[in-house]
Design a protein around this nucleic acid. Structure first.
Lengths: 127, 127, 127, 127
DNA sequence: GTGGTCTAGACCACC
DNA sequence: GTGGTCTAGACCACG
């Protein structure tokens, strides 16, 4: 799986990392039960601080996307995200979609075009 | 129009403000040409510093959502956002939707449900 | 002569006014000795405060572009701008051109293209 | 690189700073990838507030002249200014040149002299 | 140590 | 009265 980080972005690196991994799981590039690279591997590969990778993993763990086994390292959780995180996610998702809708409409997009964009995004998760 | 700010959020106040106002314009709660509250009014109402509000207005101005007439204060721009901001917005929007899709799918949502959510969000802009 | 003012611009209206009139004189749309509209006429025509127009005229007068006769109002000065203003203008002009050159180059323009742009601008003054 | 600020000028300090840095990049005094002084350094050196410097940097960032890496501070962007800023710049540049031409002509400059001035300015960017 | 955010309060230009 | 600018000083997130 390819992880792309933009060091000059304003979103923190550990958040970018978290997002990229969530996308990777969603797309099936990382399968349930599959191991993630170790913190050291990934930090070396991306040229970022190990603490940054560690922080991303920790968030993914609290959100229930991954679980860590002392012996095997981090692996994608089979059961999917925990209930609590999911509920929070729902509200946040609606709020984000509301903002996105507003921006889309004000750029002249109509309902059909916006939904096509949404559908295209979701389609990437179904391959 | 009601603006709700979460002082304990990790997203900066001026970004929250910017987002709320974009939503307000999108929903038609703020009509083209309509005046926004003055910087001082809004800052007093929200209990934040005037510079914070000013910063939000300046961003909205460079994005082309509003314009400021030295005589009347800030008002919603009739022409809509500038081309430049719109182009950047497209890529960002696709990236956000990709992440949202991944999160949605991993919470067990199927395509239909996700698109319904998207449609509901956009519907708020069409009232 | 047509004067176009952008009320939502960040450059003060009286400066825009001053600039437009200088351009007008340069282009020959306002001939030496020709009368300018009265402050009241112009302020009414543009829908701006009379004091704003007055301020622009005052600047043009100190710069030596126009002169005011109590009986005839303001008129384009035959002799052109005064020496002092001209000297100041020279330095300022060089500084502005330096900035413009930098911006041009960084946008990928080459010398030839930049000079063509400069030549085109000057050509408007020679019709 | 030497940065000179005129505290008594009517153009805001952060704009002067932005302009000086753009000139510096154009002249090659600041090379692509090279680091700019930190906000605190520069603010101390110039005797202005850190926020003022920060504001200048933020503008240069949105214009695409520099980028900030959370680890190393601000650095000159290799790719040059973003397309969006470049487009706006073109119109503004033509308008400025038009005004400059008028002023030049009214000071008695002829086409040849004006173009020499323009050429001299651009030459500084080609050393 | 870096930039980013926010505050409280002051002053100014513009209209 | 409006937004814009600047200050001095504090705190925080990030890495």
């Amino acid at each position: 799986m390819v992880i792309r980080i933009d060091l000059s972005s304003d979103t923190p690196i550990y958040v970018q990392l978290r997002n990229e991994i969530v996308k990777g799981i969603g797309k099936g590039e990382l399968l349930p039960g599959e191991n993630l690279p170790t913190v050291r591997q990934l930090s070396a590969e991306l040229g970022v601080n190990a603490m940054t990778v560690s922080k991303a993993y920790q968030i993914l763990k609290t959100e229930g996307y991954i679980e860590t086994d002392r012996r095997r390292g981090a692996a994608v959780r089979a059961a999917g995200p925990k209930g609590a995180a999911a509920e929070n996610g729902r509200e946040k998702m609606e709020s984000t979609l509301e903002l996105l809708s507003a921006e889309a409409k004000l750029q002249g997009m109509d309902r059909e075009e916006f939904l096509r964009l949404c559908g295209d995004a979701f389609a990437q998760m179904e391959v």
